[in-house]
Simulated assay, not measured.
Amino acid sequence: MYKLRGHHLFCLLGYRGMGYSQEYVENMTLLHQTLRSNPKTLIMLVKGPDQLCEKFPNSGEYHCQDDHIFERDAVILDKMNLTIGQILRWEEIESHILKHVIPADIQVVCETCSWRSYGVCEEGIREIHEGKGLRKIQ
């Protein structure tokens, strides 16, 4: 079982093999590939730093404890009708995305995210709506 915070549910949709450091990318890629190949993988929704934050590089401000990130987590979980402490299969999380999220939501809930300008998270939501699941990392 993986422990994930709210906004990382969206980050996984847009993940394309880029990240903050090599260690972070390796960790994110492993999780992403696991969820892609086994959508029945269990996820526990947590408040605050999760298993992806563990590999965030120690190179200055640790944004994983930033109040704005906690707010983003809460908004995303609320948008998806999910709560901290819930345990779901990844495929159930994708179902919540399909029911409650549209690509344009990224512009609002992730307004201050530095990755938003790439457009990959919106693309990831579109692909969930098209029944494609997580994209294969090249």
Rank of each mutant, 00 (worst) to 15 (best):
M1F: 14
M1T: 12
M1E: 15
K3W: 08
L4I: 12
L13Y: 10
G14M: 05
R16G: 12
R16H: 10
G17H: 09
G17L: 09
Y20Q: 09
V25P: 08
E26G: 05
M28G: 08
T29Q: 02
L31A: 10
L31V: 09
Q33F: 02
L35W: 08
R36Y: 06
N38S: 14
K40Q: 13
K40C: 11
K40F: 10
T41K: 12
I43L: 15
I43A: 11
I43G: 15
L45Q: 11
L45R: 09
G48F: 07
P49K: 15
P49Q: 15
D50Q: 08
Q51A: 06
L52N: 07
K55V: 14
F56P: 09
F56M: 14
P57T: 07
G60L: 03
E61C: 07
E61N: 06
H63F: 13
C64Q: 07
D66L: 10
D67C: 08
H68G: 07
I69S: 11
I69M: 15
F70P: 05
F70Y: 14
R72L: 03
A74T: 09
M80V: 13
I84A: 00
I84V: 14
Q86N: 03
W90K: 00
I93Q: 00
S95C: 00
I97V: 01
I97A: 02
V101S: 03
V101Y: 02
I102D: 01
P103N: 02
P103W: 01
A104E: 07
A104L: 03
I106C: 04
V108F: 04
C110L: 03
C110E: 05
E111A: 15
E111I: 14
C113S: 14
Y118A: 13
C121V: 15
E127V: 00
I128S: 03
H129M: 07
H129S: 02
E130Q: 09
K132F: 04
R135L: 14
